[in-house]
């Protein structure tokens, strides 16, 4: 795939945000906040970083693979998958509706191209990504495995089982990103369950940690992922702390947990869409 320029990629971010808001608005359910905050990450990954094939093969041999562990970001993932050609963009209108392949949380059961494992019950994706990374290693497949987790998700114990394991085995074809937005459904993580020093935690577990401080600046996100990639193959798993703002791109949604799991009403949608240029055509 030909790489696109930064302004072109910016346009996709804007469209992804429109898609997310229109999807959750249409069914009056879903999680807009975090996917708005991860738009740059999704676009950087699928349109710039991943060596992937939208002609979907479950085993992903020879391809870079991405797993979404925090499955409630499904609207954002579905948008970037559709916009990269995994399935028709028009299918986004079926999000969370009966008989849809676009389940509330990602699933393989309906065979939506791009999805390799169900997620939604938090804390499981890192383990799955590590397993796939090891399968690649056995097969001497040099491509990479990526996974995104929420910061609140790190409260799940399984994440730390997986963290310990990946470092022990030196799984170095893996780049895990934490969406470090400091928000979770009941409030700021600092109030709900303080994550304290995440960088030190992951380092103590034996990971190579990089920080992407401007997680809503596309050039920074790409630079962070490039750096992460340059650190693979050196005997350590890579952790990318991606500082984002939940709800980024819409002035009344940004920086609060209030839009974690609440859809906008008609008026709020119109206001929000007014702040986001329609660049690739709404679905």
């Amino acid at each position: 795939m030909k790489k696109q320029s930064l302004p072109e990629l910016q346009k996709i971010c804007s469209q992804l945000r429109r898609d997310v808001l229109r999807m959750v608005h249409a069914v009056q359910s879903g999680h807009p906040g975090a996917p708005l905050g991860c738009a740059e990450f999704f676009v950087a990954l699928y349109f710039d970083q991943l060596h992937h094939n939208p002609d979907f093969q479950m085993n992903g041999k020879g391809e870079d693979l991405f797993f979404l562990s925090n499955g409630h970001l499904s609207a954002g993932w579905y948008s970037v998958l559709a916009r990269s050609g995994y399935f028709p963009v028009a299918e986004l209108k079926t999000f969370r509706k009966l008989n849809s392949r676009l389940q509330g949380h990602p699933a393989t059961h309906e065979h939506l191209p791009g999805i390799r494992i169900a997620s939604g019950s938090l804390g499981q994706g890192l383990s799955v990504a590590i397993g796939t990374a090891q399968a690649k290693e056995i097969d001497q497949d040099n491509s990479l495995v990526y996974v995104l987790m929420g910061d609140g998700e790190l409260q799940e114990g399984q994440v730390w089982e997986a963290a310990m394991y990946a470092a022990h085995f030196g799984v170095d074809n893996l780049i895990a990103t934490v969406d470090y937005n400091g928000q979770q459904i009941d409030g700021p993580t600092i109030k709900v369950m303080d994550l304290k020093n995440l960088k030190a935690k992951w380092e103590a577990f034996g990971w190579e940690v990089i920080e992407t401080k401007e997680g809503n600046d596309l050039a920074s996100v790409i630079a962070g992922l490039e750096k992460a990639k340059s650190l693979t193959g050196k005997g350590k798993p890579i952790l990318n702390l991606l500082y984002t703002e939940m709800g980024y791109g819409v002035d009344f949604m940004v920086g609060t947990h209030k839009w974690h799991g609440s859809p906008p009403n008609d008026e709020q949608l119109a206001l929000a869409l007014g702040q986001l240029e329609e660049t690739l055509g709404d679905y």
Binding site: G60, R116, V128, I130, G131, A162
Partner: peptide
Amino acid sequence: GLAAGMAL
């Protein structure tokens, strides 16, 4: 989880 990842 590892097993599921290896299986896929």
